[in-house]
Simulated scan of single mutants.
Amino acid sequence: MQTALRTALLTLLLATAAVHAAPSVPKAGPADQEWKLGKALPHPADNAATPARVALGKALFFDPRLSGNGTVSCASCHHPGLGWSDGQKKSIGINGQRLDRAAPTIVNVAFNTQFMWDGRARSLEDQATGPLASPQEMSTDFQHMKLMLASLEGYRTMFAAAYPGEAVSERTVAKALAAFQRTVVSRDSRFDQWLGGKRGAITQQEYRGYQLFKGKANCAACHSGPNFTDNGFHNIGVAQGGHEDVGRYKLRALPSMKGAFKTPTLRDVALTAPYFRDGSAATLREVVEHYNAGGAQPAPANLSPEVRPLQLTPAEVDDLVAFMKTLTGRQKPVTVPVLPQ
């Protein structure tokens, strides 16, 4: 009995010594602060996110009655339980129509300067009406929508509180939706905590992945800054298959923009599978392996110069994936609002 006890104590002491001997993750330095997300939420001068505007926008966001047949809402493709995306390779619109692209997350859209995969919306307010107007997405009859909203006392009260003196219109609907979406913010991730001085917030493996992210893996060339996006457009070599999607080229007919799409944020990326604009990567590991191979082969002629074979080892791929999982923010419960009847 005493021998067994001594052995157990010795094992515990050795394990404790090993933990204390293991090198700790370095403290975040001044250069690392470029990744720190600001507390202020950008907004246009005429649409600050007041409580009344956010409440109205949230109700509209979850209300399927805005769609042409009353069956789909903004939340159908941007579900809070699915990282504010929909978990589909390509989203499903009104009447079960399969769309051409995956639904991007709306997490941290307040910090974006470009909107939609091809950047065709000039602002978040402009973006808000795009899915409503699309015959494939929500197919909204705007005249009917305005009459419906104005006919409900609850909505009339909410619009009057949010935008006093302004009519119930496409514009005020768009402004309210944008005001709500700007409040969908991911922050206080384990990586953020490490930036804030908590050295134990990330592991050695995750720290190695961070160094790879900035260096050998070249991720930071496009996924830069506090929101992990350059708000730019790149052809990353995703295979087109039988349908060619020219992306940004439709708006800017430059050779480099053919097949180029907006760089998505990586905040909460572990929650938003599948990945790429066509949902062709099921896991983060598949994403990293795509870049490690230099994109799908044969590579398109206008492949972004930032996409090239990386020669990452399997262990380095693991480290990089581990780092990206540290970007998941603290999740706040989201309640579906009771809609005006």
Rank of each mutant, 00 (worst) to 15 (best):
Q2K: 15
A4N: 14
A18E: 12
V19D: 10
A21V: 08
P23I: 10
H43K: 13
P51I: 03
A52D: 06
A55F: 08
A55P: 01
L56N: 09
N69A: 08
T71C: 05
V72W: 07
H79T: 10
G81P: 05
G83V: 04
G83I: 07
G87H: 13
V109G: 01
F111D: 00
Q114P: 03
F115E: 00
R122T: 04
R122N: 01
T140Q: 13
H144Q: 14
L147W: 05
L149Y: 11
L152Y: 08
R156H: 10
T157I: 07
A160Y: 07
S169T: 11
S169L: 11
E170T: 12
L177Y: 12
A179H: 10
R187A: 06
S189L: 03
L195F: 00
L195M: 05
G196R: 04
G197N: 03
K198M: 03
G209L: 03
G209I: 00
L212S: 11
H223R: 00
T229M: 00
D230V: 07
A239H: 05
V246L: 08
V246Q: 04
P255I: 02
K258V: 03
K262D: 07
L266H: 06
A270M: 05
A273C: 12
R277N: 09
T283K: 15
L284N: 11
E286C: 15
V287K: 07
E289I: 09
P305Q: 03
Q311V: 10
P314I: 14
A315I: 03
D318G: 13
D319A: 14
K325W: 00
Q331K: 08
